[in-house]
């Protein structure tokens, strides 16, 4: 499981930034639940097939969206009632922090590989380029302390070639998977 049930010692769960983030999430959940409730209500009730009115396809999605709507409202009310001095500032700082930037760069690299390189280039080459770029970016630019290019380059190149070759060979030859 991902979230250990350990006591929230730092009180991070109710930090001002988290309270404000909860408010934004609550608004999103309310909008999502309302849209899904509308979708469930207007969903085809298959009257032409004379199905029982209690078995319409929109029944359970409707109930679930109502449940999410209630949870969203409770979350919103709770976020509004809890004091959160400097919450918006802290939240803004968290979103623009170095940590968020690092996660953003990982995401950009992953998306460039998945949506751009895969399909455009042969899979082994796309994979090699991704591994090479990932290692170089995170070892020579975003690492603390940074590694020198000379130190990183052989590793990045070697791993890129090895990953591209091994993954392609193992999946295409041993597991007979047609790679993208």
């Amino acid at each position: 499981m991902t979230t250990p049930a350990e006591p929230d010692l730092q009180g991070e769960g109710h930090s001002p930034a988290m309270i404000r983030a909860d408010l934004l999430a609550a608004i999103f959940f309310i909008v999502l639940a309302t849209a899904m409730l509308y979708g469930s209500w207007t969903m085809d009730r298959l009257e032409a097939r004379r199905i029982h009115s209690f078995t319409v396809p929109g029944l359970v999605p409707g109930l679930l969206s109502a449940a999410l709507l209630i949870c969203g409202v409770v979350l919103a009310v709770r976020s509004l009632r809890l004091p959160a001095p400097g919450g918006w500032t802290d939240l803004g700082a968290a979103i623009t922090s170095g940590a968020a930037g690092r996660a953003g760069i990982v995401l950009v690299l992953c998306l460039a590989y998945t949506l751009g390189l895969v399909g455009l280039l042969p899979f082994w080459l796309a994979t090699g380029l991704f591994v090479f770029a990932f290692i170089l970016v995170f070892e020579t630019w975003l690492a603390e302390p940074r590694r020198s290019l000379l130190q990183s380059l052989p590793w990045a190149f070697g791993l890129a070639v090895a990953t591209g070759a091994i993954v392609t060979l193992v999946f295409e030859r041993a597991f007979l998977v047609r790679l993208p």
């Binding site: 992953c110 895969v118 990953t163």
Partner: peptide, 20 residues
């Protein structure tokens, strides 16, 4: 830094391979 790049490649292949 070296491990996670390879893990992401496995994520892509792992999710693609079953239904292709």
């Amino acid at each position: 830094e070296r491990l996670m790049a390879v893990v992401y490649v496995l994520c892509v292949v792992g999710s693609f391979a079953i239904t292709q």
